[in-house]
């Protein structure tokens, strides 16, 4: 199952918006793909915390401790996959 089947296009757009906000520097919106490595695009550790909180608020979820690692927030698709798991 791919992340896109877990989370629809609207949700992917919402995640993308939040990611762009949290990265906090200008990056080409179109170059931000679902699989792009967010850390290599400049997502800092501290910004990851902001990203986590913003995602939780937007999707009304709470990431469990087991998901609080760098792997969860590495890409839009990895975030979507976790949201999918928590929403099921």
């Amino acid at each position: 199952m791919t992340s896109s089947t877990l989370t629809g296009p609207v949700e992917m757009d919402a995640i993308k918006e939040i990611v762009l906000e949290q990265i906090g520097r200008t990056i080409d919106r179109d170059s931000l793909q679902e699989q792009s490595d967010l850390y290599s695009l400049g997502l800092t550790s501290l910004a990851t915390v902001g990203l986590m909180l913003a995602i939780e608020e937007r999707f009304d979820i709470e990431f469990p401790e087991s998901m609080l690692g760098r792997a969860t927030f590495r890409s839009i698709s990895s975030i979507a996959e976790c949201i999918g798991k928590l929403s099921n």
Partner: peptide, 13 residues
């Protein structure tokens, strides 16, 4: 906090 787990994970990683 919970976000601190992310920071700690990144520091160790």
């Amino acid at each position: 906090g919970r976000g601190g787990r992310l920071m700690a994970d990144a520091q160790r990683d």
